[in-house]
Amino acid sequence: MNRITALVVASIALAGGLATGPTATATDRAGATNSAQAAYSCSPGNFCIYSDWNGGGTRCQWSDSRKANTADNCSFIQRGQNVRSVWNATGHRVQYYTQTNYHSRVGSTPAGQGGNLQGNYQIRSFKPQ
């Protein structure tokens, strides 16, 4: 009987351990998401663009709700580098364009969100949606 009892106890322990596995994974994923958001250094109220993936590289940020020409004060755009990631810390969705003066819309990002882009274009202007 002791062998059967030990087997039952071991089975219950194993089942209990498996039941907590997904919870740990979900916690890890949430932690990774929070870490990703923390990687995007963007001051509240600003729209930020980055020369590298995941908010890395050179950052340009604007507190203005719209910018007709980002090259006016963004060094990596002036050097011809593409935008690889964005973060929108404003209170509104931001639309962005590959040309100055709000021409050739390429995308938009909701308030409080961001992430990686295709990385094969520059954001040359932006405004609220």
Rank of each mutant, 00 (worst) to 15 (best):
D64E: 08
T90Y: 02
C42L: 13
N73R: 08
D72H: 06
P110G: 06
C74D: 08
L18F: 14
G80S: 11
Q118V: 13
D28H: 01
C60E: 03
G115I: 11
R66Y: 15
A38M: 10
T20M: 11
N120D: 15
T98G: 07
D72N: 11
C42P: 00
L14H: 02
R66E: 15
Y97V: 02
A38N: 13
A89V: 03
G57E: 01
N34L: 13
T90I: 02
V83T: 15
L7E: 07
P22F: 12
G17S: 14
G56F: 02
S125L: 11
N82C: 10
A13P: 04
S43D: 15
F126K: 02
L7G: 05
Q37D: 11
Y121T: 11
G16T: 08
G21K: 04
T109H: 00
P128S: 10
C74R: 04
R124M: 13
R59Y: 00
G91Y: 08
Q122A: 11
S125Y: 06
R29T: 08
V106E: 05
A6R: 15
G114I: 07
C48A: 10
A39E: 13
W53N: 09
G17R: 05
Y50R: 09
G56M: 05
G91H: 09
L117G: 11
S108P: 00
G31F: 01
Q61Y: 01
Q122C: 05
S63H: 12
N2V: 05
I4H: 12
N69S: 15
Q113P: 13
R84M: 10
V83C: 07
R66I: 03
S43I: 08
G57T: 00
R124K: 15
P22Y: 13
N73K: 10
Q37V: 15
I123F: 03
Y96H: 07
L18T: 03
L7Q: 07
H92N: 05
A39R: 09
Q99G: 07
M1C: 04
T70N: 11
A13F: 10
N82G: 09
R3D: 12
G57K: 01
T100Q: 06
R3Q: 13
Q113D: 14
S65T: 09
Q118I: 12
C60F: 01
A36C: 05
A6L: 14
L18S: 03
G17Y: 09
N82H: 11
T23V: 14
S125D: 04
S11A: 15
K127E: 14
Q113T: 15
N2H: 06
N73T: 06
T58C: 01
S108V: 03
T33H: 07
G17D: 05
T27E: 12
S125M: 05
G115H: 03
P22L: 07
Q129R: 12
S51Y: 00
P128E: 13
S43K: 15
Y50D: 02
Y97W: 12
S125Q: 04
G17F: 10
A39K: 12
S85N: 07
Q122N: 13
G115A: 13
P128G: 03
N73W: 14
W53T: 14
R84I: 05
